[in-house]
C-alpha cells in the first residue's frame, strides 16, 4: 500500500550518478504499479460500513482489535486512492463535505480561501499558474457554498456533484495541487518554525520544492500541521498500525483544536472516517 517513492526522500539528495539508472528503473516499475492501482481504486470511493475494514484483517488479531476500538467511535469509512495524494484528497473531500452542513464554517473558510492566492503570489509563485489552480479550486468551493446549510434534499445534489468532481482526474488533481501550494505557502511563511521539523541539511524551500509541491509525494506530519494551520481547520488522525495495545491512537492537528475532519491513517495511506 506504500504510496510512492517518498520513503526514499531522506537520501535522494545524494544520489550518485550511476544509481540514477537504477532509480529510474524503480520509478518506472512504480509507475506501472501506480497505473494498476489507479485502474482498480476510485480516487474517492463510496461510503462503506466500518466493518468492511475487518475483512482486510481476517487473520490479524492485532488489527482486528484495533478495528473494534475504532468502531466504538466511527461508523463509516470512505477510501481514497493510494497515489501519494491521498492525504490532500481525503482532507479536502471530508472538509468540503462538512462545509455543506456548516454555513458558518463555510463563510470563514471562504474568506481564507479567497485570500490564499494573493499570499502565494506574494511569496513568488507564478501568478499565471497559481490563478489557474485557484480558479478551479474556487469553482468547487463555490459550488459547495451555493447550498451550504441548505435542506437535505438540495444538499444531496451537491454531494453527488462533489463526488463526481473528486473522481474526475482533472478537477480532483487541481484541488490537490492547490492544497499543496497552500501547504507550501504556509511552510515558507513560517519557515523558522517549520525548519525544526525537517531532518538533514535541506531548507524549508528545498523541502517544499521536493516533497510538497510535486504531485504524488506522500504527506507527513509536517504537511498536515502546515495545511491545518493555513486553513485553520482541525484534523483528527487515527493512527492504526501494528503498535502495542488495542487502542487506536489519535492525533489532533493543530494540537488542541476541535476536529472537523477525521482521517484514518494506516502506514502509507489516509482514508476518511465518519462518526
Amino acid at each position: 500500500m506504500a504510496d510512492d517513492a517518498s520513503s526514499s526522500s531522506g537520501f535522494t539528495g545524494n544520489v550518485v550518478d550511476n544509481s540514477i539508472n537504477q532509480d529510474e528503473l524503480i520509478m518506472k516499475q512504480q509507475r506501472e504499479i501506480e497505473k494498476e492501482i489507479s485502474e482498480s481504486i476510485p480516487l474517492v470511493g463510496d461510503l462503506e460500513q466500518l466493518a468492511s475494514l475487518e475483512k482486510e484483517y481476517n487473520e490479524d488479531p492485532i488489527y482486528l482489535l484495533k478495528v473494534k476500538d475504532l468502531s466504538s467511535k466511527y461508523k463509516y469509512v470512505r477510501r481514497t486512492r493510494p497515489d501519494g495524494n491521498c492525504f490532500f484528497r481525503a482532507f479536502s473531500y471530508a472538509y468540503l463535505e462538512h462545509l455543506l452542513t456548516d454555513k458558518q464554517e463555510y463563510d470563514k473558510f471562504y474568506e481564507i480561501a479567497k485570500n490564499s492566492k494573493d499570499i502565494l503570489v506574494a511569496l513568488g509563485f507564478s501568478q499565471f499558474t497559481v490563478e489557474d489552480f485557484y480558479e478551479t479550486f474556487m469553482e468547487v468551493v463555490q459550488r459547495v457554498g451555493e447550498q451550504a446549510g441548505g435542506s437535505p434534499d438540495t444538499l444531496e445534489a451537491v454531494r453527488t456533484d462533489l463526488h463526481d468532481k473528486f473522481n474526475k482526474q482533472g478537477y480532483s488533481d487541481y484541488i490537490v495541487v492547490y492544497l499543496r501550494l497552500i501547504t507550501s505557502g504556509q511552510l515558507q511563511t513560517e519557515q523558522d518554525f517549520y525548519q525544526n521539523f525537517i531532518e538533514g541539511p535541506r531548507t524549508v524551500t528545498d523541502f517544499c520544492r521536493q516533497e510538497v509541491e510535486p504531485m504524488y509525494k506522500e504527506s507527513d506530519h509536517i504537511h498536515i500541521i502546515a495545511l491545518s494551520n493555513a486553513l485553520k481547520v482541525g484534523v483528527r488522525v487515527k493512527y492504526m498500525d501494528r503498535g502495542e495495545g488495542s487502542q487506536v491512537i489519535a492525533h489532533d492537528f493543530p494540537e488542541g483544536s476541535s476536529p472537523l475532519v477525521h482521517l484514518l491513517y494506516r502506514p502509507g495511506h489516509y482514508d476518511i472516517l465518519y462518526a
Partner: peptide
C-alpha cells in the same frame, strides 16, 4: 527523480 516536475 524526474518526478519532481511541479504543476505550477
Amino acid at each position: 527523480h524526474p518526478e519532481t516536475w511541479q504543476p505550477s
